[in-house]
Design a binder for these strands. Structure first.
Lengths: 185, 185
DNA sequence: GCACTGTATTTCGCTGCCGAAATTTCGGCA
DNA sequence: TGCCGAAATTTCGGCAGCGAAATACAGTGC
């Protein structure tokens, strides 16, 4: 991934030694060192960024799963309630499908268990009888709010090591990338 | 949080600072606008970064799944072969477990199918009989190499919108974050 | 030697997700 | 009104991942 042809730019950074100013190296640096011989011509910065994003995302997912469990929820349950709450407490399955980026069948499954736990209500829509109205119950909203704080804590802890300006820079760089992704299709 | 909500193009609400120099806004900017009223006190840059990383990671995952399929592989199969190749063609299951960030049981499952397809060999280790040697076969290496190029193309396309220096900045910022994650526990 | 603790890997049972097909309803159009 | 393609949702079959327990072996202290 991320092989990069010719490029002999201004920043001659010796590979086997990518590290930050304090000399610290993270898992990804070692990972790239191992790959260098196998796939030379790989852009280290692209590869490093992609790898780190992937690992960070997975880590945050795990933490969420774990932290939210204290409130008797699973990550996916929480996420579903979260989206539902974000839509004012009611939505159609197809809305959730889009927001959560899931297959239709998966939505049905999630609603199934949430309904059993009394966190949502499922009633056939009156206006369009193909549809179903999903409503967040009081119990559902309560569970969501309780778990809410735990969820953001790890994000703040990790991203908090950056200065305010660094965070802004990071967010901006990522926007630029996402615009390239969203602009395709 | 990060990774959800409303997908509909929303009414352009103006939040100063949530756009790049050209004024372009990505999906995440809209996402944050929608949540701002519901959850004030949320750091926009943290939330934005986390959300973008999550979405980008998932996007790349999809592309990989889809592109690699042309070569008769699944994403997870490719990833496994990839790690294996990166370690010179042989490793222990526990190595894969670490590199792939999987539960031990999942590694067994993956090796099972890879072995059935003739892409890896599993032989009991001679030096430490608790261990198993996983070896990449010729067929496995061939499949990996064929699919390899497809995989990196999208990464290069997306991250390529950043300048050389921006990419390096991005990688450095992310290292800083990862060091925070990998450190303490 | 022997018990004990720790590590590597597999097995088992369960859950969630997905793709595809089926079902019901909607909206347009003849 | 009657037909037809599209849309919303569910059902079905299958697969991958996980946690926990089981198995087998290694290394250490006695």
């Amino acid at each position: 991934m991320a092989e990069h042809p010719p490029e002999q730019p201004t920043a001659p950074r010796d590979r086997t030694g990518s590290r930050d100013r304090t000399g610290a190296r993270d898992w990804t640096d070692g990972h790239l060192d191992r790959w260098q011989p196998v796939l030379p011509g790989l852009d280290p910065d692209i590869e490093a960024s992609v790898t780190r994003m992937s690992r960070l995302t997975r880590h945050l997912g795990r933490v969420r799963e774990q932290g939210v469990a204290d409130y008797g929820l699973h990550k996916h349950e929480f996420d579903t309630l979260h989206v539902l709450a974000g839509r004012g407490g009611h939505a159609a399955p197809s809305d959730l499908r889009a927001d959560l980026n899931l297959a239709p069948a998966s939505v049905t499954g999630r609603l199934e268990t949430l309904e059993r736990r009394g966190f949502v209500l499922r009633t056939p829509s009156t206006e369009d009888r193909r549809k179903v109205d999903i409503v967040l119950t009081e119990a559902g909203r309560a569970a969501w709010q309780e778990a809410l704080d735990v969820v953001g804590r790890e994000e703040r802890r990790l991203l908090g090591v950056l200065s305010e300006e660094e965070r802004r820079t990071l967010a901006d760089l990522l926007r630029k990338v996402m615009l390239a992704q969203e602009g395709e299709r």
